[in-house]
Design a protein around this nucleic acid. Sequence first.
DNA 1: CGACGTAAGTTGCATGACAAAACTAATCCC
DNA 2: GGGATTAGTTTTGTCATGCAACTTACGTCG
Lengths: 396, 396
Amino acid sequence: MANLRQASLRHANLALVARTVLAADTPPSRADVAAATSLTRSTVSRLVDELVAGGILDEVESVVGGPGRPGRPATPLRASTGRFAALGLQVGVGHLAARLVDLTGAVLAERLVTADLAGSRPGSTLRRLGTMAGRVLEGAPAGCHVVGAGLALPGIVDVEDGRLLSAPNLGWEGVAPGAALETALGGLPLRIGNEADLAAHAYAHPAPGRDSQPQDFVYLSGEVGIGGAVVVDGEVMTGRHGWAGEIGHVCVDPDGPPCRCGSTGCLEQYAGRLAMLDAAGLDASTTPSELAERAHAGDKEARAATQSAARALGVALAGVVNVLDIPTVVLGGHLAQVGDLLTPDVEEILGRRVLSARWISPRVVIASDDPAPGATGAALLALDELVRDPAGALGH
Amino acid sequence: MANLRQASLRHANLALVARTVLAADTPPSRADVAAATSLTRSTVSRLVDELVAGGILDEVESVVGGPGRPGRPATPLRASTGRFAALGLQVGVGHLAARLVDLTGAVLAERLVTADLAGSRPGSTLRRLGTMAGRVLEGAPAGCHVVGAGLALPGIVDVEDGRLLSAPNLGWEGVAPGAALETALGGLPLRIGNEADLAAHAYAHPAPGRDSQPQDFVYLSGEVGIGGAVVVDGEVMTGRHGWAGEIGHVCVDPDGPPCRCGSTGCLEQYAGRLAMLDAAGLDASTTPSELAERAHAGDKEARAATQSAARALGVALAGVVNVLDIPTVVLGGHLAQVGDLLTPDVEEILGRRVLSARWISPRVVIASDDPAPGATGAALLALDELVRDPAGALGH
DNA sequence: CGACGTAAGTTGCATGACAAAACTAATCCC
DNA sequence: GGGATTAGTTTTGTCATGCAACTTACGTCG
């Protein structure tokens, strides 16, 4: 609720112009931006010039395919490539990832290793991640300004204090990753966040300032447990303390099996990776894809496992959709790998249990199989600050 | 995502000053507003003068209790009384209400009748409400400008089209109340909304622009069924289509009793008014307060009924709190009347089933026993538009 | 091939909203 | 009654945008 001065006006319009260019599918001209924002061409010109000078936007020298239209040809604008970037990190139960993402959403450099980190020591794991981060930062092109870093973690996080409060699947408790990564990042500001929240952000925004469809959805993610996030109007709902989205511990059946969390009948006990494999009579090391293959091949137990998972997902998600009226569900992580088996059953249950399904029937969508979407989301979130206030990156 | 011109700047600051005055507990001076908004005194003066001239703010002639402080005495400012007002209407299953609320949140005039409207004909009921509305409007003080009207309805509403899609407890389906009320309202713009959403708004905002604690909560309301709303940062989450908050149909037990909605084991089947009375072996006409008395007196059946309701509430709300991280629950409607019986059990279950309860334990609060909080909320929402853009009410 | 039409982008001036600082007003204190 | 203190007003300056005229660069057509 800050006040507005003239400067705020310029900041806001600078951000508006930047967002408009970044959000566009094809590089728009200054005139296009003026039309889209209802600012005048003169104002847009001035603002664009500043953004180009600041290295946030680029003028495209497109001699290609001039549309053969009368009048002076337009100068298309787009996000600058390789001038600004952010570092995205992720610690998963099965992998470490470090990525450098620029304003166009392109990955400039990347390192990804698989490793079983359940029960690992936070210090050494984070130092290992720090080394990867250092290598990735070295891969940044010359003149590239890295504006920030983000770290995606599979657990409950205190964003303000930069502390991981609890990550049961890693066996970590009360870890502050900032200290262990500080030297590797060379003073780069680090923000940490919940993996599902960040993955959901990446799903809603393929690049900084760009929106994908849908902009309202419930995201489910999972490696071992089930994490989740609620996205409203392109923004991840973090809740009162940043702990929203724990859909894995929504109760599906109060008389169901006990959960590590102390409760009973949690969704995770039916649709968690281990729960599904166990129900299918498979070893914990089996991949979800293998489970999917077996189910497709006609394995009865595997089929039953996915059906029971789908039933639990349907009940839990119906509650969420009833409360939030967000009739799109995105399945990520291990749920994406068995997604085609789950989707029909889950949609059927949602159609039955969601009150508003009469008018709009809920849909289930399967996310891409990027192993570390949280890392991308973390980088995008850092870049978003730049887009939200470009004036900060220019000479104030 | 509109652009910003200089005029928007003034509009925004006008709104900021108005909100600051309305939100204050004690009438602030221009200097206080300047300090609170970090605008300069000169700017605040100009904006306040405009708001006073426009009849939105009043200067208090408080000769009383000058604080005995050196310096020129301040001119306290507050929302103007009786100059602007809005009409709030409500159709409940058991009552009709019409209220005129002004910018201070005071009720200038009111009509309230109890009536069994389950299965009533929409046309005649709305005409009856229209007559009440007319009387209330006549009760407006001279020079009072009624800026809008709102109607709270117990069902699923299409806010855009102004249509009640379905209100099972009234037996109404596909009703557009605007037409039936048009003449009674004399062209006043009418907005309709879900009763629980509007009641929750009234709980978060006792008066236009004023915030109460908490600003983040889950609101449960009930006359026959159970309605709900989610409030984040003082704003009611309406969801993608305005149908959010249907907590009454969150599944508590997939093998539970069938619900009218077509699903099974909905919260409403345990904690709905009829469900509770039925479980206590009482007649449908018994009031919830009577049930509470019996339970307090030691009636085993009544006790069991509230306990079963509390258990269902705990399970359903735990899911909501896990997903949204909003650890405050407000009980309204019939749940408020048995609130003291429910609260301990519900809090106990939440403490067990909410993942983040280790760090912050969820609380249950009981709302006031206003029979028609939705009417107040509807009026406040209409007045909020005035507060959000005071420039519109002045000479542009 | 040159004049014309058209659309993109730029320049100069007017407007208006806020900041800063000096000024006036009204009270308490000594 | 004078000085200190705080509230509110007036004056002047700054700055971002709108507006309109202008320049640029391209197609088109005779």
